[in-house]
Nucleic acid binder design. Structure first.
Lengths: 165, 165
DNA sequence: AGAAGTAGTACGCGACACAAACTAAATCGG
DNA sequence: CCGATTTAGTTTGTGTCGCGTACTACTTCT
């Protein structure tokens, strides 16, 4: 009864990659680990997106402000963090700037570069938004026992570790 | 050494809600369960999005085609599944139709309704795409032991159950 | 038959993302 | 020091996406 060393279900034919919640009345638990991860990611992202739009922000803008909480990067570094083209940053930052959430300042060391920083209004907004997101997701995990919390953190760490960078 | 009964970290002040992978060299494991879930969701969604764009599809289009794999819903039902406004469906389906991935047919029972179905080309594409997504995410979970696979499925089921519907 | 509800579309708007072309500043090789 | 190259960022144009509003056509209720 040794656990087999191959993942038990990676070749299942029809994973639920559409992000919908199955409507089957009885057995709607994910049948494969892949399904579990995909469905979970859609659930979490949906929550985050809902909170973001409640604050009149897109998810990308939340990520932008979130990065700026402890950094003052240039446009290119921002683009790398957000996995966007540099040309996409211009509009993104411009819109945030027009709303007074963000400030552009010239780099002291590089005449080409622009540093992006949170304004006090931006900080207030992202803090409020992050707190609410935290609350929502915390509520999601509330049915878990303390041991399950630990399990989930451990599993996530294992999955995230090879992708740090 | 009994595990405490309160969730250990739900009130941590600064969760990494920006979806970036921490760049700290040493300790980059998520410190809270919420962080773990959020980071994981961004990682998975990023993978799915990359595969989708590799097939010249958006994530929403993949979800659309995914739903149609085993259904032939009307526009309104599609909108409900995708959490979109019904007016957003028109364009979405129209673009997919223009690419020959999807077919609109009148409902036999309701003169107003339109049923949306996959074309053979659409089925080929979504199958290929889903298989690749499955492979990517399966690769992500490959460092997990068989027991950890089960753990993750169980945890996900617990988290997803209250949100089925 | 007439009133009310429902399914879908049309249109206008803005956000978002990319690619390609461009400007300006830094850096490199000689 | 000077020209060539690289780098940071913007501009412009195109297309997707999503919403709200208004509209049409068909059903359903009474």
């Amino acid at each position: 009864m040794t656990p087999r060393s191959t993942p038990p279900d990676a070749s299942d034919p029809a994973p639920a990659l559409d992000g919908r919640t199955p409507t089957d009345p009885a057995l709607d638990a994910p049948r494969t680990t892949v399904d579990a991860l995909v469905q979970l990611s859609f659930l979490v992202q949906g929550m985050l997106a809902r909170v973001a739009t409640a604050h009149d922000l897109s998810l990308v803008q939340v990520r932008l402000l979130g990065i700026l909480r402890d950094r003052r990067p240039g446009m290119l570094e921002l683009a790398r963090h957000l996995d966007l083209d540099k040309s996409s940053m211009t509009g993104l930052v411009a819109r945030a700037e027009k709303r007074g959430l963000v400030r552009r300042e010239p780099s002291p060391h590089d005449g080409r570069a622009v540093l992006v920083a949170l304004t006090p209004e931006g900080r207030t907004l992202i803090d409020r938004c992050a707190a609410e997101m935290d609350a929502r997701v915390a509520e999601l995990t509330s049915p878990l026992s303390a041991g399950q919390h630990t399990q989930l953190r451990t599993l996530s760490a294992t999955l995230l570790r090879p992708h740090a960078g």
